[in-house]
Amino acid sequence: MITAERKPLSEIKEMIAPYKKILVAGCGSCVAECASGGEKEVGLLASALRMDAKMEGRKIEVNEITLDRQCVYEFIDQLTGLVGQFDVILSLGCGAGVQALADVFAGVIILPALNTAFIGQTKEAGLWIENCRACGDCKLGYFAAVCPITRCAKGLFNGPCGGSKDGKCETDPDAPCAWQLIIERLDKAGRLDLLQNVYPPADWSKQQGKGPRKIHREDQSI
């Protein structure tokens, strides 16, 4: 899933400063899971913004809504007919959500309230860890399903580097060395032979293509 974190309130306040009628729009999928843009967070942000305006003597109106998903037109329909009542929509969606809203409601100001972070996994309650960079050329099969691009600080395909110590990464004593994990797991799987391969450089063109990447499947489009 996609993770995100709320922007500092000061940054949000600065963005919405010129506006009076604000719709705080959450998203019920990924960002709800990482507790940054779901219904609850919408309530909290709206409440905080109302109080903040009150303290500064500004009169604003803050309303709340949470869409099932902000990145899908069918769900964005929940906003149709409502947007006109507002000066601005403060989106608690990920970058995809914000842009999808802007795509639908051209002419309405859509502002992001979140910083979209990464694709990751909920490791435990309150802990999300990045584990995929969406490189477009998955090589997990060689690396015992530990992504060296994401989980090795240097993205080494032929690691580990000399900084690996006690199974931890030199950049962060709390972060496991991805290569340590790879080696351990290959060992368990009896595939240590894979370690001797010299893997060629990655094909980054699949990640950084020409402009935004797209997938188009004929069979999926009627």
Partner: peptide, 19 residues
């Protein structure tokens, strides 16, 4: 190239040199 005999996982260090 360089090698670090002191980093972990130790067992793999020589293999990496071989690589």
């Amino acid at each position: 190239a360089v090698a670090n005999p002191f980093a972990d996982p130790f067992a793999y260090r020589a293999i990496r040199l071989g690589k």
